[in-house]
Nucleic acid binder design. Structure first.
Length: 749
DNA sequence: GTGGTGTAG
DNA sequence: GGTTCTACACCAC
């Protein structure tokens, strides 16, 4: 087993130095001395394990070298989304509130539950039951994700053995914290008689301090209570906890007393606890499919599962699954708590009633992609794979299975993926459209009700060419007075937090409000903070004439000329950013994402902004040019827009995303001189109409760009494209500074 | 090793 | 079935 770089090298909290600090700050907290950063001390050996779903974990950090009774805590935030929303909108406190995604209520607070509202109820139904209910759309998970990671981080202050189950649930293995505390309170092996259980005990079972298992669980309950207190002090959210000898049981009992309570399960009550479940489906680890198959076997109760012949079960479900769920039915679960670190993939998806046109598919894919690119930029890692998932409804048969296709991301595109949407959106959309066409015969009628875009195989960019915004970038920067980048330094701790998405200071350094800093990361998205408010420092919400729905703070972050453009657009009834009630929200969202301008352009206009390094235009294949691994049987996309300005007449293909340079070529061809308002000469292969519809400033930017490119030594790019290696081309002098380019609004570098 | 699908929470 | 994610096992190639 190996510790991930994240776990050991990048996480200062697990260093010895930090342990000493932790001891000072919180004397009751056990030191984390089983993870030693010194090279002489080998990392703890982990056992391959499996979680409740049967997934094995080769990189578990469970330390099997320490004997003793396991104590696992499961913390489940109480109606998480609703709590977050009440925190963000204190005026909603005490009112019935539900959070919905599309037409479904996904969670609601206890006031709404009192009215009969429940999860997975339609919004319509919920409002009928409770007309005064506050309804909040929870489709944008950004805030929830932020707070969720903050909570995990707070828990990691106790121990590194924290496993995120989902946004609002964590498992914590506190076995070693318990052992430490035991050593501290037990003098000469004698346990004080005043050991108690914090919170409820399952079945009101009496604690027996003569039983070392009871003592450990009791101490565990105290640690769990402290964890809940830390969470509440840190983010003002309450949660319920379960304390038990394994993950399965901890999860089962955490929900018994809610909200803001906890339950400890003593070993003698395990069988009672399991038998209290009315159906196998209630066992975490037995999902709807498995439960259905059990139903076919006539197994509809825990007792039925426990007593069913294992060999028959194995025949039907396979040996592995059968044995696993059979053991689960007895409350046995030896799976380890696995700190997984950063997510292995980032995805975004959207559902809709029906989508049957390619244009709409493209638009939705682009929206998902831009949203994902922002998260990716913040993450700092680079994906090697992109995946498109769809759910379609055929005319003959309604089915809900998902289908997906994926492909590697071309190297040169991968390297640019974190620099800004201009560089990558269009080629990535083209890739995704190809993947879509790989699944759907677009020549016939199709209906799609879900689209999901996923970046997978996330890797750190090499330190040799770190991407700004990534941890790698900061680690290679030498800034005066901040040279402490040692594994134990607080700078590193902050970097970790930046990666996590909360830029606020260390606990203890910042005692301000619970949500402070949660949104601060947005300021740095796409490098907008590099060009910031000093452009127009006096602007305020009251005098800005901003269109409704635009966040003043975000607006102030924008360059002055863009601010003017927005105001001008707002005052014009024909402005591109004109808002209707629905559009207001998307405008704000886009502003927050820093992509509003890009999105306000037509596709053809955007293509003009594609930087020269990435090109989707067709190029004759070359042996030394990396190619995207999409089967050539894909139907070629006869997209005329792509062919515009192409080097040759080949049909556009995903495979042809090459670093050659559409704009570079534009700058090198003999230009037809056109007379347009604000115009100089524009390249012959630029549609004058498309160009003329661009905002004047963009026209000027492009003209300047083209003019500059004309100073680049002339060369036959069509030939060059097939000869020059990608890396060499990436470093070619054609890469013009973006300081005066509209691209600066999108690029941080 | 890669890609597609299914299961799970 | 309904949402929005994230993760991983298993299988085919």
């Amino acid at each position: 087993m190996e510790f991930s770089e994240y776990e050991l090298a990048d996480n200062p909290r697990y260093s010895l130095q930090e342990e000493e600090e932790e001891e000072d700050e919180r004397e009751w907290c056990c030191t984390v001395d089983y993870v030693d950063s010194s090279p002489a001390s080998p990392a703890p050996v982990a056992a391959a394990s499996s979680d409740l779903t049967g997934n094995s974990h080769k990189d578990s950090i469970q330390d099997t070298s320490v004997p003793g009774y396991r104590v696992i805590v499961h913390i489940d935030l109480d109606c998480f989304y609703a709590q977050v929303e009440m925190l963000r909108n204190p005026e909603f406190q005490g009112k019935p509130l539900a959070v919905h995604q599309k037409h479904m209520v996904v969670t609601c607070n206890y006031e709404a539950r009192k009215c009969g509202v429940s999860k997975v109820m339609s919004v319509f139904e919920a409002l009928e039951i409770c007309p005064e209910m506050v309804l909040i759309c929870g489709e944008d998970l950004t805030h929830y994700r932020e707070i969720s990671y903050k909570i995990t981080e707070l828990l990691e202050e106790f121990t590194p053995f924290v496993e995120r189950l989902c946004l609002d649930e964590n498992f914590i293995d506190i076995s070693q914290l318990v052992e430490k505390r035991l050593q501290r309170i037990g003098t000469g092996g004698v346990i004080p008689a005043n050991v108690f259980v914090s919170g409820h005990v399952y079945g009101n079972q009496t604690l027996n301090i003569a039983d070392p298992r009871h003592v450990r669980l009791a101490l565990g309950s105290q640690i769990a209570a402290e964890m809940r207190t830390v969470i509440f002090n840190g983010v003002s959210l309450t949660g319920s906890a379960g304390i038990a000898p394994n993950k399965l049981l901890a999860k089962l009992v955490s929900g018994i007393f809610k909200p803001d309570q906890q339950t400890t399960l003593l070993p003698e009550s395990i069988q009672d606890c399991m038998e209290s479940l009315t159906h196998p489906r209630q066992v975490p680890g037995i999902g709807p499919k498995t439960a259905k198959r059990l139903g076919y076997l006539g197994i509809n109760s825990i007792h039925g599962l426990q007593t069913f012949p294992l060999d028959l079960l194995e025949k039907d479900l396979g040996v592995c699954t059968a044995q696993r769920i059979h053991r689960l039915s007895f409350g046995e679960d030896d799976s380890c708590v696995v700190a997984r670190g950063p997510p292995q993939s980032l995805s975004d998806e959207d559902t809709f009633r029906m989508c049957s046109s390619l244009d709409e598919i493209r638009m939705r894919i682009e929206e998902l992609l831009i949203s994902l690119l922002i998260r990716l930029h913040k993450d700092g890692r680079v994906p090697r794979t992109i995946r498109l998932t769809i759910r379609r409804t055929t005319a003959s048969n309604k089915w809900f299975n998902r289908e997906s296709r994926q492909c590697p991301i071309p190297n040169q595109l991968m390297q640019k993926i974190n620099t800004g949407p201009c560089d990558t959106v269009i080629p990535l959309v083209e890739i995704l459209m190809k993947l879509f066409q790989k699944m759907v015969d677009t020549r016939s009628q199709f209906y799609v009700s879900l689209l999901s875009v996923c970046f997978a195989k996330l890797v750190q960019p090499t330190l040799a060419s770190p991407i700004k915004g990534s941890i790698g970038f900061y680690l290679t920067q030498k800034s005066p007075g901040k040279s402490d980048l040692s594994p134990n330094g607080k700078v590193r701790r902050q970097l970790l937090r930046q990666w996590r998405g909360s830029d606020d200071a260390d606990p203890g350094e910042n005692t301000a409000g619970p949500l402070q800093g949660m949104e601060s990361y947005q300021e740095s998205l796409w490098g907008m903070s590099d060009h910031v408010a000093q452009v127009n420092p006096n602007l305020t919400g009251s005098d800005s004439n901003l269109p409704p729905g635009i966040d003043v703070d975000v607006f102030k972050e924008l360059p002055a000329n863009i601010q003017k453009e927005i105001i001008a657009d707002a005052s014009s009834s024909k402005g591109q950013l004109k808002c209707n009630s629905k559009k207001e929200q998307s405008t704000e969202k886009e502003l927050r994402k820093g992509t509003f301008l890009f999105r306000s352009l037509t596709e053809e206009q955007r293509k003009l902004l594609v930087p020269p390094d990435i090109d989707c235009s067709p190029i004759t294949s070359s042996s030394d040019t990396p190619r995207l691994d999409v089967p050539s049987s894909l139907p070629d996309d006869p997209d005329p827009q792509l062919e515009q300005g192409a080097v040759n007449d080949n049909a556009a293909s995903v495979q042809d995303c090459q670093p050659s340079g559409k704009i570079l070529e534009l700058g090198n061809v003999e230009c037809e001189r056109l007379t347009l308002p604000n115009s100089g000469p524009i390249p012959s292969n630029v549609d004058p109409k498309v160009f003329s519809e661009l905002p004047a400033e963009l026209q000027n930017e492009l003209l300047t760009d083209w003019k500059q490119r004309k100073t680049v030594p002339k060369r036959n790019t069509a030939k060059l494209a097939s000869k020059v290696k990608p890396n060499a081309r990436a470093k070619s002098p054609k890469k013009i500074t973006k300081s005066n380019s509209i691209l600066k609004y999108f690029n941080k570098n």
